[in-house]
Amino acid sequence: MKQQIIDSKANPNATGEADDCLFEYLHAELVNYVLSKSSNAEGEEELSRLEWMGFSVGYRIIERLTREWSRFKDELDMIKFICTDFWSSLYHKQIDNLRTNHHGVYVLQDNAFRLLDKVGTSNSKQYLKESPRLLAFTCGLLRGSLANLGIISTVTAETTTLPSCKFHVQVQKI
């Protein structure tokens, strides 16, 4: 298995494409930077910069991903796209569970979120407190992607045990 991974990396046909792990390292630096900038007066971490960067990335990337895609039928169809194709190309797996109340609230659950996957051992609570900083970027990414699809929303994340997490998408009705 391991050998296969190495082989695909050495594929000479793949030109000009960045390796997966670069994004993870870059994301870690983003988090570091944002934390160094935030004033830690109330013990609350200021993660809005991270969310904002995620938003701008999401807003752009969705445009490129859906370029050759047929038109979505409705809101649910878009969310489904996010859960399947979007998520699996960005984070290597699909969303494990999608719930909705059919009134604009969606809960996307990922049981092994890529950016949390290597944090501590599974089911450990050791780094639970730090997990929001690893999720803020993706919250923004979701919000930005949906925004460019025409859905204005608020996205929040929650974790109870690593590495699983839930993203709550609340659509704002206009």
């Binding site: 793949a14 000009g16 494409e17 960045a18 997966d20 670069l22 994004f23 870059l26 994301h27 630096e29 983003l30 930077y33 910069r49 904002w52 960067m53 995620g54 701008s56 990335v57 752009r60 990337i61 490129r64 991903l65 859906t66 050759e68 895609w69 047929s70 194709d85 979007f86 699996s88 190309s89 960005l90 290597h92």
Partner: peptide
């Protein structure tokens, strides 16, 4: 009917765009 997304390409674009967002910030 749309083409399947190419995971490797998407990842590369994710990296590029994330870097761009960082520089902008």
């Amino acid at each position: 009917t749309g083409t399947k997304l190419d995971a490797k390409k998407v990842n590369s674009e994710l990296f590029t765009l994330t870097y761009g967002a960082l520089v902008a910030q």
